[in-house]
């Protein structure tokens, strides 16, 4: 995979979709104070661009030969990045939020929801 200016659009779309989905999830969890929603948005702004950039960097390094057999490495990288992002967000909620009583459960469920909803959207589009 060769890097190009398309990565900026990819990062922008990923961040926008993630913010919408995670804020919607927070709303479903009855987290509706402006401060708390801003914290959720900030936590995702902290992790999402870094995760996307790291993923595409790994893709460029791993898939330089374009071989199918190396794609499992990318899956492992993606898993590691998603887990790290969820952990970082949970840590932020634990330290900074008063309304999110189960920060780890919220973070894991929000990340699962935004990941799979994103996959569905991609398949539909």
């Amino acid at each position: 995979m060769k890097i190009g200016t398309w990565i900026f659009a990819a990062m922008g779309i990923s961040l926008a979709v993630t913010l919408v989905l995670e804020l919607a999830w927070a709303w479903l969890w009855k987290i509706r104070e402006r401060r708390e929603l801003l914290l959720v948005a900030a936590a995702n702004l902290l992790t999402n661009p870094a995760v996307v950039a790291c993923y595409y960097l790994a893709a460029e390094l791993v898939l330089s030969d374009g071989r199918e057999t190396e794609k499992w490495i990318l899956w492992a990288v993606k898993g590691f990045l998603e887990i790290s992002a969820a952990a970082a967000e949970a840590f932020c909620y634990q330290k900074c939020s008063r309304a999110i009583h189960r920060p780890w459960l919220f973070s894991i469920s929000a990340n699962l929801f935004s990941y799979w909803a994103g996959v569905c959207l991609q398949n539909i589009i």
Partner: peptide, 19 residues
């Protein structure tokens, strides 16, 4: 890309630290 990531981490980190 690195600059944009640094910017987003810096901005969000500042907000989170304030909170």
């Amino acid at each position: 890309v690195l600059g944009l990531v640094a910017l987003s981490v810096g901005a969000s980190g500042g907000i989170i630290w304030y909170f």
